[in-house]
Design a protein around this nucleic acid. Sequence first.
RNA 1: GGCCCAGUAGUUCAGUUGGUUAGAACGCCAGCCUGUCACGCUGGAGGUCGACGGUUCGAGCCCGUUCUGGGUCGCCA
Length: 570
Amino acid sequence: MFQSRTHNCNELRLENVGEKVKIVGWMENVREVSGSLSFVVVRDFYGTSQIVAETEETIKQFRDITKESTISVEGTVRERASKNPNMPTGDIEIVPEKIQVLGRCRYNELPFQINHSRDADESTRLKYRYLDLRNPEVKNNIVLRCNVVSALRSSMTEQGFLEVTTPILTASSPEGARDYLVPARNHPGKFYALPQAPQQFKQLLMTAGFDRYFQIAPCFRDEDARADRSPGEFYQLDMEMAFANQDDVFSVLEEVLPPIFAKYGAYNIASSAPFTRIAYKDSMERFGSDKPDLRIALELQDATEVLANCGFEPFAGNCVKAVVVPSFTQTRKFIDKLCAEVEVQAGNKVYWFRLDENGELVGGISKFVTEHKDAVVAALGLKPGCFVGLSAGKTLAAQKTAGVLRKMLGASVDGLMNKERYEFCWIVDFPMYEIGEESGELEFCHNPFSMPNGGLEILNKVEAGEADPLEITAYQYDLVCNGIELSSGAVRNHDPEIMIKAFELVRMGEADVKAKFPAMYNAFSYGAPPHAGIAPGVDRMVMLLAGEDCIREIIPFPMNKNAQDLMMDA
RNA sequence: GGCCCAGUAGUUCAGUUGGUUAGAACGCCAGCCUGUCACGCUGGAGGUCGACGGUUCGAGCCCGUUCUGGGUCGCCA
């Protein structure tokens, strides 16, 4: 029978000198200093300890054990002759009396070296994730995740929120992403769907009288992956409050998140609560994005008036946006590469010119600008040595392209961005409706359950032709941190009458609401509270806290980009 | 599905205009070394240059096709 250890590998100190102990763990390294002196490093979850072998017999015994085997060492703690101040257990070492192999590593060579696993090919890391996770750097992200989840849970509970679990096997919801389906054995031809979010259930909980709900909720969406989006499944801190408005939701998260970011974050929080609120329209205007990275010290400028008619064909009749970088010293090669990358990402061209040290217009499309130089310099506030990047098109396209350019400049030009901090903001007042690109007709902009700003009244005005539907905003909001959309939420539309009216404006009606969302429609007809909620992504939050750029670094067993589990799937 | 990038030793990478036997570091194996801690020193083993086809006297390098991986657009109420 296996006898338990007396101490873990991070526990022993000077005061333990002389004690008989037993430690267990993975044999990380052997350093043979001579034929009669060798040091062995044993690692467990908690840390590492040094074993010293001083007899030829012990040295040979360790030499015959392959690295990364699990071993147990019983022996006596001794003060080291030469201490290692960088190691918590660096003052002591263990003189072994009994050494046992518990689990032999059958390979001399591993797929990668444990302590350098982060440098290895990612497919190999995922296939041997259990080895990858032995690397303390990798493991620590998972520990961080656990701590963050635990902190979120207690903070929400402290705020009076009740954790309620909602079904995993449920009915498909017609809106949104692609579902994952599970065959229903008792109902041939029918399927359960895994929830894309507990959206409807939490709203039904509100209707049932639960006042404050939350859940660390697994969500399933069959969509393609990104660096900050793992395929298939992810977790949200899903929450909903009854008899509440937008400000109520904001103050909960402004209370819950900052202390957790302060305690567990790799960087400092730059934005104190209450977080900056930026209207969607302003965000597009100033940053060319609805998830602006406020760490970047650049804003878009409008150059339509001074440049639309400068004679440069692509600008004619278009909206023109400019991003100006003062004291720009990068090479022509850099600019070309930058423009090419923006073009790929934005699907739209970028143009540029520079005002050199002598105040002369040079490079790019400067010859088209020369004639209007004074006006352009004045309008954009240009100083010698600056770079001007330009985009053109319909307003939204020009904004988005300039937004991509802004982001790339921020990431690649020194001095534009202090990366080591957290900048939060709320994006508010999203439009309720938009003209669909394919249909060319009025459509819901986001989800159809948000409360329109102005309620039934404004919808009636639209119907009467007295208001523009495209001007209606919804009580819909995003929480953004460092250019990453952490969360989306809304004040919900809890009134069936307003719901039907909202659907009628997009050529649907009561029958559609009933057919698509029967439970919610029925429930709301029995007296529903005004309610609002939000659902911050846990994975993305941990990713930000860990200072990682890739979501897989903070998931214990991630799938690859193609939604395959390389470890389990032979 | 589109676009971009990468694929060379167990691992991370270098490889010049197409030219002799494809290199380095780490790891592995052997030997030396009495206080190492990324130990050090000496030596050794280890390669279908992702795959297939083409151009050429000659291809890791050029061309075509394809596979794999990552990033991104579409998509993600």
